Computed example of a mutant assay.
Amino acid sequence: MNTIHQIEIRRECLAPGAYYLQPSGPEVREVIRRLGMTAVQVSIFLGMTNKGGRQMRRWIAEEAPIPYSAWAILCAEAGLGQIWSDDLD
Protein backbone atom coordinates (compact mmCIF):
# COMPACT_ATOMS: atom_id res chain seq x y z
CA MET A 1 0.00 0.00 0.00
CA ASN A 2 1.41 3.37 -1.04
CA THR A 3 0.89 6.22 1.36
CA ILE A 4 1.13 9.69 -0.13
CA HIS A 5 2.15 12.42 2.27
CA GLN A 6 1.14 15.87 1.17
CA ILE A 7 3.48 18.67 2.18
CA GLU A 8 1.97 22.03 3.01
CA ILE A 9 3.28 24.89 0.88
CA ARG A 10 3.97 27.95 3.02
CA ARG A 11 1.78 30.94 2.18
CA GLU A 12 4.86 33.15 1.84
CA CYS A 13 5.98 30.95 -1.07
CA LEU A 14 2.67 31.58 -2.83
CA ALA A 15 2.94 35.37 -2.80
CA PRO A 16 3.51 37.90 -5.58
CA GLY A 17 7.16 38.47 -6.49
CA ALA A 18 7.68 41.49 -4.22
CA TYR A 19 6.66 39.44 -1.16
CA TYR A 20 7.81 36.01 -2.28
CA LEU A 21 9.82 33.69 -0.08
CA GLN A 22 11.97 31.02 -1.78
CA PRO A 23 10.33 27.58 -1.44
CA SER A 24 12.20 24.76 0.22
CA GLY A 25 13.27 21.67 -1.69
CA PRO A 26 10.39 19.62 -0.24
CA GLU A 27 7.93 22.34 -1.32
CA VAL A 28 9.30 22.24 -4.88
CA ARG A 29 9.05 18.45 -4.84
CA GLU A 30 5.46 18.67 -3.57
CA VAL A 31 4.38 20.98 -6.39
CA ILE A 32 6.00 18.66 -8.93
CA ARG A 33 4.25 15.69 -7.27
CA ARG A 34 0.90 17.48 -7.50
CA LEU A 35 1.53 17.99 -11.21
CA GLY A 36 2.02 14.26 -11.66
CA MET A 37 5.07 14.92 -13.83
CA THR A 38 8.62 13.63 -13.77
CA ALA A 39 11.54 16.04 -13.51
CA VAL A 40 12.17 15.60 -17.23
CA GLN A 41 8.52 16.35 -18.04
CA VAL A 42 8.66 19.49 -15.89
CA SER A 43 11.80 20.73 -17.63
CA ILE A 44 10.14 20.18 -21.02
CA PHE A 45 6.94 21.87 -19.81
CA LEU A 46 8.96 24.92 -18.70
CA GLY A 47 10.81 25.01 -22.03
CA MET A 48 14.20 24.53 -20.44
CA THR A 49 17.15 23.61 -22.62
CA ASN A 50 18.24 20.91 -20.16
CA LYS A 51 15.76 18.15 -20.84
CA GLY A 52 17.43 15.77 -18.40
CA GLY A 53 15.86 17.15 -15.25
CA ARG A 54 19.19 18.04 -13.63
CA GLN A 55 18.00 21.53 -12.78
CA MET A 56 14.89 20.12 -11.08
CA ARG A 57 17.13 17.98 -8.90
CA ARG A 58 19.18 21.08 -8.01
CA TRP A 59 16.03 22.96 -7.01
CA ILE A 60 14.81 20.03 -4.90
CA ALA A 61 18.24 19.60 -3.26
CA GLU A 62 18.32 23.37 -2.61
CA GLU A 63 21.60 23.62 -4.53
CA ALA A 64 20.09 26.35 -6.71
CA PRO A 65 17.08 28.63 -6.16
CA ILE A 66 14.07 28.07 -8.38
CA PRO A 67 13.35 31.23 -10.40
CA TYR A 68 10.13 32.94 -9.38
CA SER A 69 8.77 32.71 -12.93
CA ALA A 70 9.24 28.92 -13.06
CA TRP A 71 7.78 28.52 -9.57
CA ALA A 72 4.75 30.67 -10.44
CA ILE A 73 4.05 28.66 -13.61
CA LEU A 74 4.35 25.36 -11.75
CA CYS A 75 2.10 26.57 -8.92
CA ALA A 76 -0.55 27.76 -11.38
CA GLU A 77 -0.46 24.45 -13.27
CA ALA A 78 -0.68 22.55 -9.95
CA GLY A 79 -3.89 24.40 -9.06
CA LEU A 80 -2.38 26.71 -6.44
CA GLY A 81 -3.55 29.85 -8.24
CA GLN A 82 -1.87 32.68 -10.07
CA ILE A 83 0.55 33.61 -7.32
CA TRP A 84 1.85 36.63 -9.24
CA SER A 85 -1.53 38.34 -8.76
CA ASP A 86 -2.17 40.65 -5.81
CA ASP A 87 -5.82 39.53 -5.79
CA LEU A 88 -5.27 36.38 -3.72
CA ASP A 89 -7.31 37.37 -0.69
Rank of each mutant, 00 (worst) to 15 (best):
M1V: 03
N2S: 06
T3E: 06
T3A: 00
T3C: 00
T3M: 02
I4Q: 03
I4V: 01
I4L: 04
H5R: 06
H5V: 08
Q6C: 00
Q6F: 03
Q6A: 05
Q6D: 03
I7M: 07
I9S: 03
I9P: 04
R11C: 03
E12A: 14
C13P: 07
C13E: 00
L14P: 11
L14W: 04
L14I: 07
L14H: 07
P16D: 09
G17N: 13
G17V: 13
G17R: 15
Y19P: 00
P23K: 06
S24T: 15
S24I: 05
G25S: 05
P26D: 12
P26R: 06
E27A: 02
E27I: 05
E27F: 07
E27T: 02
V28W: 04
V28E: 05
R29E: 11
E30G: 07
V31A: 07
I32G: 03
I32Q: 11
I32F: 07
R34M: 08
L35E: 06
G36R: 09
G36H: 10
M37P: 03
M37C: 05
A39V: 06
A39T: 06
V40D: 04
V40Y: 02
Q41L: 05
Q41A: 15
V42C: 11
S43Q: 12
I44Q: 06
I44Y: 02
L46M: 01
L46N: 01
T49G: 09
T49Q: 12
K51C: 10
K51A: 14
G52A: 10
G53N: 04
G53D: 01
R54E: 10
Q55F: 08
M56T: 13
R57L: 09
R58D: 14
R58N: 13
R58G: 00
W59F: 15
I60G: 05
A61H: 08
A61C: 07
E62H: 02
E62F: 03
E63Q: 15
A64Q: 14
P65A: 12
I66K: 07
P67I: 05
P67M: 07
P67F: 03
Y68E: 06
S69N: 13
S69P: 01
S69V: 10
A70Y: 13
W71N: 08
A72D: 11
I73H: 05
I73D: 10
A76T: 11
E77K: 14
A78V: 08
G79L: 09
G79Y: 08
G79Q: 09
L80K: 04
G81F: 13
G81C: 11
Q82C: 08
Q82A: 12
Q82R: 13
I83P: 05
W84H: 13
W84P: 02
W84E: 12
W84I: 03
S85D: 15
D86Q: 14
D86E: 15
D87A: 14
D87N: 14
L88D: 10
L88K: 14
D89P: 11
D89K: 11
